[in-house]
Design a protein around this nucleic acid. Structure first.
Lengths: 114, 114
DNA sequence: TTGTATACATAAGATTGTTATGTATATTTG
DNA sequence: CAAATATACATAACAATCTTATGTATACAA
């Protein structure tokens, strides 16, 4: 598990990117998928995820449809067109940021990028 | 300039690493060095830096000596032994986190690490 | 002499996470 | 079958950490 400060600021990007690749997911599924994909190293808490999903929906990046499994409810999220654009931008920004950080930490001196 | 959320959680690592490489720096110098090294893409604000330096000093990672240039004061920071250990740990953690994030964002599918 | 740079510091406010709690159904296990 | 665990949503109190604004003070450039 990584110290939680690191995850700050990347959560929206993770969610948007996952939805871009998977097409349609519900909240709980996102937490499990991220946990699986990272061998438990990144664990999104529900207290962080649900407010983030609501916020992304409010700002027009996501739309929802409810589905009923027997009596239980699931809220599926999909990217809007705007959300697709935002997803790409966020991923690009994070990628560039990580390259800059690598350079700053002298981990990839040969790259010479900044 | 990167959106500021991304910098959250990496500031301590940046500072500790810089001091590890440079040996001795003062606050303002750190802001300028980071700005230069990243072509202005990462700009540490003083409102973020000084509290961080004070916190790192309080927790025993840094020690200070004052220097006077005429009438002006400068506070030079150096890593303690504990600070050197912390610096390495933080850099390692951030590096691993970035690899995990890369994998999660599917930027390096061939690596297969997580 | 006025603006910009250097150099420190702190406080109010915003953002975004953790931890705790709540509700409710479904499934597994002793 | 009862109890624990997993699924699935949600929100609130609290904490950490950043931005923005403000303050003090000296040095230098236009």
């Amino acid at each position: 598990m990584y110290s939680s400060e690191l995850i700050k600021g990347t959560l929206k990007t993770i969610v948007l990117n996952l939805l871009k690749e998977q097409g349609r997911m519900y909240g709980y599924e996102i937490t499990q998928r991220v946990k699986d994909l990272t061998n438990g190293k990144i664990q999104i808490t529900e207290g962080a995820l649900y407010p983030t999903l609501h916020s992304l929906e409010k700002s027009g990046e996501l739309e929802t449809e409810k589905e009923y499994l027997g009596k239980r409810v699931r809220k599926y999220y999909t990217l809007t067109e705007q959300g697709q654009t935002t997803a790409s931008q966020k991923v690009n920004e994070l990628t560039e940021f990580m390259q800059t950080m690598k350079f700053l930490l002298d981990l990839d001196p040969q790259l010479g990028n900044a």
